[in-house]
Design a protein around this nucleic acid. Structure first.
Length: 773
DNA sequence: CAACATATCT
DNA sequence: CAGATATGTT
């Protein structure tokens, strides 16, 4: 790698490595040269390296190799293939939260950039003097240990002088110890345990077990000449989503770090990383569970939930699923059980989940608010609380000046209250918010206990109302356009959802125990009353699927492959044995009482072909069980069966854009190993003769820069309008270049059903089947 | 001893 | 606080 050496060949040097990405070669060169010229005057103290790359692809491949050596990334917005923000997201996905500054002549991109997690935005053309700010930022990030791997050796002192900032590299560990007492390395604990305090061998092996920066297999090529790259990984939402997916997939009680790590398949993650995160996650869940049990009497009454999900059998698997665990999760869910099982008290969320025009949480959220904001639609079952994208994203007009984009914690109550008609609650923020606000709107991180919240980014528990970002536990009645995790009843989500989410509507992956949902992607077991457009597995009652289905799914309707023991199914694809009462439009074998429009094979009594099939099905011929061995291919083919195409399904990104789901999400996987091509970079060998004063580097002056999250790397300070799948593999691409739309829902959206339809199982199924016919 | 859980540190 | 690291346990 052509530029790698300069990173390592100095013994004590503050190195700043800036990567500039721009497809305009002229600008790129000017920019790079200027940056190089702005080297700090004392080149023995600070060394600046500019890596110039011409496009996003090259930027990513460079990062593969030098991820941990890049302190700052400056990217143009408009570039072919992938714009600067897409690049940012991709970087975040693959390498964590590196500081990215977006450049564009288009000031309209400023807000988008900051919303999407860019650390800064700068308008082209750029004055040379402004470029020093890049170094300020790079230094700041480096100092805070947010951006690069050198965190272990970094001070966190905010007032550290530049001389103290000097970085040492591992091959100078001895030097480091003598020069900076703070940095005395600890003995390796395992070696201490295992070898009576003799930490030499294991310490060495561990210390030098460098994770490869290029996203390789992580096989730990040891090289004493390389620095120990122990970066502080950032659990971005995307990464956390993957983590959650892993937990879902493995099973909550069986999810251990190693398995999670294997599932996640993220090259730069270590088992320790996962273990640490898992620990925090468990703590989080426990906290939420405790809160839930404490607050359940008035915050989240099961009344509303139960009244919508009246089937006891539906609720049951819910709780039984995890009771084996004696860990935190068992505790958590047992709490949840009581949480859901207790008779409700009619406050708040039950109204959200009910078909009533009464005020939702009348003590907190007047009906006028609901009407005015169009945020809630009380007539939707399961609270498909679709957010009006326009109103949420329209920062102009009357909301200007009322919203804070950059001040995450300010208590700006009543700033938006008038717009929301909501007294002194209802602030809005673009960045992280961490307080107990009612009805706030946030485009950044949100913390617990935020009722009626609307968020575009990481949000955690007990937020009732809605969100447009990541959601964690116990968020009833919400609508999410990002990831959502468990125990979120009555939600609508456009991305991944995990367990225990009844009455939901999802456009992404769903896992077990989610009754009465509608989804457009993969679903796993024990999901009753679900409607799905992709793969479904066993034990899903009353479903409607447009993808593969497996066992034990009574009363389903499917448009693709079905396997055995599916009672009362309707299928438009292949069916396998023992599916009584089916209706099929494709191949079917061993089916009892079915109605088929294509090839049927043996042991299909009471079945019918197209000429009279539908009627026979409606006549309930599965009760007239008469074996009628048939030759295959006997039935007439049913032409032009309308099968909803996966390609037509839509996903919504965090900002409400519709994204076409082009590929099967099951193909989605992280692949950090691809694209190993050589990195071509341009280095500029210019004399460092531009003297820039020290204080220039450390004083941020007010000008037309906008900075967001100078403490980059904090996951809650970041925003993004995309989620995991978007940024990753070739097999799952969503374009963000769609106009904002909201209503392209070419599927059976159960959330639009009348609540009474869902209150009765048969009515419910009728709705389903009628919809299919 | 690897892997896990938990405690503590930064 | 989030993530890393140390320590105890299986």
């Amino acid at each position: 790698m052509a530029f790698a050496q300069p990173f390592y060949n100095q013994s004590s040097l503050l190195r700043i490595n800036v990567m500039v990405v721009d497809d305009d070669p002229v600008f790129l060169e000017i920019m790079s040269r200027t940056l190089e010229k702005l080297k700090y005057r004392d080149s023995s103290t600070m060394e600046i390296t500019v890596i110039a790359v011409k496009d996003s692809r090259e930027a990513l491949s460079t990062l593969k190799i030098e991820r941990n050596n890049i302190d700052l990334i400056v990217t143009d917005y408009y570039m072919p293939d992938m714009n600067g923000l897409q690049l940012k997201k991709q970087i975040t996905q693959e390498y964590g939260n590196l500081p990215v500054i977006v450049m564009s002549s288009d000031t309209d991109k400023e807000h988008e950039s900051l919303t999407c997690g860019a650390m800064g935005f700068i308008q082209k053309p750029i004055k040379a003097t402004e470029l020093t700010k890049f170094y300020q930022l790079a230094l700041k990030c480096k100092r805070n240990g947010k951006s690069t791997l050198w965190t272990e050796n970094n001070h966190n002192d905010t007032d550290v002088s530049i001389s103290q900032q000097i970085q040492f590299f591992p091959e100078q560990d001895n030097l480091m110890m003598t020069k900076t007492k703070k940095f005395s390395p600890r003995p390796d604990s395992r070696s201490m345990n295992s070898s009576n305090g003799t930490c030499v061998s294991t310490d060495a092996s561990r210390k030098n077990k460098k994770r490869k920066a290029n996203g390789g297999s992580g096989d730990g090529v040891e090289s004493l000449s390389q620095p120990s790259m122990k970066s502080k990984i950032t659990w971005t939402d995307d990464l956390h989503d993957l983590f959650l997916q892993a937990i879902r997939h493995i099973g909550l009680d069986k999810a251990v770090p190693k398995k999670i790590l294997e599932f996640m398949n993220v090259s730069y993650l270590t088992r320790e990383n996962v273990a640490s995160h898992l620990q925090k996650y468990r703590q989080f869940l426990r906290k939420v569970a405790e809160r839930s049990s404490l607050c359940s009497s008035n915050m989240l009454p099961s009344n509303g939930i139960d009244s919508i999900y009246p089937y006891p059998h539906t609720r049951e698997p819910y709780y039984n699923n995890y009771t084996s665990s004696s860990s935190w999760y068992g505790t958590s869910l047992s709490n949840n059980r009581s949480f859901y099982s207790n008779p409700g008290h009619g406050l708040g969320q039950s109204r959200l989940l009910s078909n009533t025009s009464d005020p939702v949480r009348s003590n907190q959220m007047p009906h006028s608010y609901m009407n005015r904001s169009s945020t809630y639609d009380t007539h939707r079952i399961g609270s498909n609380l679709t957010l009006p994208v326009e109103s949420n994203l329209n920062y102009s007009s009357q909301n200007v000046g009322r919203r804070s984009f950059l001040e995450p914690t300010a208590n700006k109550t009543s700033q938006t209250s008038q717009a929301l008609g909501f007294e002194q609650h209802g602030l809005s923020a673009i960045n992280g918010s961490g307080f107990n606000n009612n009805t706030l709107i946030s485009y950044g991180s949100l913390a617990p206990n935020q009722l009626g919240t609307n968020s575009y980014k990481g949000s955690i528990s007990t937020q009732q109302g809605m969100t447009n970002g990541s959601l964690a536990l116990n968020q009833p009645g919400m609508s999410a356009y990002g990831s959502s995790t468990s125990t979120q009843p009555g939600m609508s989500s456009h991305i991944s959802l995990t367990t225990n989410q009844p009455g939901r509507n999802s456009y992404g992956s769903l896992t077990a125990p989610q009754p009465r949902m509608s989804t457009h992607e993969s679903l796993s077991p024990n999901q009753q009353g679900i409607s799905s457009y992709e793969n479904l597995t066993s034990n899903q009652l009353g479903m409607d699927s447009h993808g593969s289905l497996s066992h034990d799914q009574p009363r389903m309707s499917s448009y693709e492959n079905l396997t055995s023991n599916n009672l009362g199914l309707s299928s438009h694809g292949f069916l396998t044995p023992n599916q009584p009462g089916l209706k099929s439009y494709g191949s079917a074998i061993h089916n009892v009482g079915l109605n088929s429009f294509e090839g049927l094979t043996t042991h299909q009594p009471g079945s019918s072909n197209f000429s009279y099939g539908l009627q026979s099905f409606l006549n309930n011929e599965n009760t007239a069980y008469e074996p009628q061995p048939q030759t295959h291919a006997q039935a007439a083919a049913q032409p032009n069966i309308e099968i909803p195409q996966q390609e037509n399904l839509s996903l919504f990104d965090d900002l409400g854009n519709i994204n076409e789901l082009l590929c099967d999400i099951s193909n989605f996987e992280l692949d950090h190993n691809k694209q190993q091509e050589a990195v071509s970079t341009t280095q500029f060998e210019l004399p460092a003769n531009v003297s820039t004063e020290m204080n220039q580097f450390f004083s941020l002056e007010d000008d037309d820069w906008t900075f967001l999250n100078t403490n980059q790397g904090l996951s809650n300070g970041e925003t993004s309008n995309n989620v995991a799948p978007e940024t990753n593999s070739q097999t799952f691409n969503m374009s963000t270049n769609h106009d904002q739309e909201q209503d392209a829902q070419d599927f059976v959206d159960w959330s639009f059903l009348n609540p009474e339809d869902l209150a009765n199982e048969y009515d419910f199924m009728d709705s389903l089947f009628n919809g299919m016919n």
